[in-house]
């Protein structure tokens, strides 16, 4: 069985299968987070005036700012990892992917301290609708980070070198497609940060 357009682009659509697949997946992710954002707006409008702002001030803006920068850096290093593969430089690819992995660990660590700080002050999802939506949105986002991390570790382990030696183009495409997912996770955070922490 040989499925066409895994590596080369189909002429009339100009796409490879996995690229189209991941974009459709991301479209569904947009709707998933969209549902939650819509819940946020709905609840905010139903809440007492000033209630959301008051609870939002409990969150740590410095931690979230650092996390934003960390996530943006991981996004850049992800795209650099792909660019290195395009330039046929596998060792550089490993370095950049390593940075991405490191950044996502940093993100998770900071998030851990944020969550435990809240719990230490007896703030739970059940405290208020703001905290409920905060924990749900960031929790789902963290799950996306963890999922991405698992895939990145897979592409970082020695097996990746074999894949690269055997089918360099396909491997590059995989990294590109994964990169799209990773940038999307970054994108979600770009909106989560002001919506939850600053408004």
């Amino acid at each position: 069985m040989n499925i066409p357009y895994v590596v080369e682009e189909r002429e009339d659509t100009g796409l490879i299968n996995s690229k189209l697949g991941i974009w459709i997946f991301l479209a569904s992710e947009v709707m998933l987070f969209g549902g939650l954002f819509s819940a946020y707006i709905f609840l905010r409008m139903a809440a007492l005036p000033g209630d959301f702002e008051r609870w939002a001030s409990e969150l740590s803006v410095p931690m979230a700012t650092v996390n934003t920068v960390v996530l943006i850096s991981s996004s850049v290093s992800m795209v650099m990892a792909w660019a290195s593969l395009k330039m046929k430089d596998f060792s550089k690819y490993k370095m950049y992917l390593g940075i991405t992995i490191f950044c996502s660990f940093v993100f998770l660590t900071i998030k851990y301290f944020e969550y435990s700080g809240k719990f230490a002050h007896d703030i739970y999802p059940s405290s208020n609708t703001f905290m409920a939506i905060y924990f749900t949105l960031t929790g789902l986002h963290v799950l996306h980070i963890i999922g991405g991390l698992v895939v990145m570790l897979y592409f970082y382990f020695p097996i990746s070198h074999k894949m690269w030696d055997k089918q360099p183009e396909q491997f590059t495409n995989r990294i590109e497609v994964f990169g799209l997912y990773w940038h999307f996770v970054d994108l979600v955070w770009i909106f989560l940060f002001p919506v939850l922490y600053l408004l």
């Binding site: 709707m31 549902g35 999802p125």
Partner: peptide, 15 residues
């Protein structure tokens, strides 16, 4: 496009 909002809603109800 239509299933993910239910997934979101299911997560919220689970919460």
């Amino acid at each position: 496009l239509a299933f993910p909002p239910l997934e979101a809603a299911a997560v919220l109800q689970l919460m």
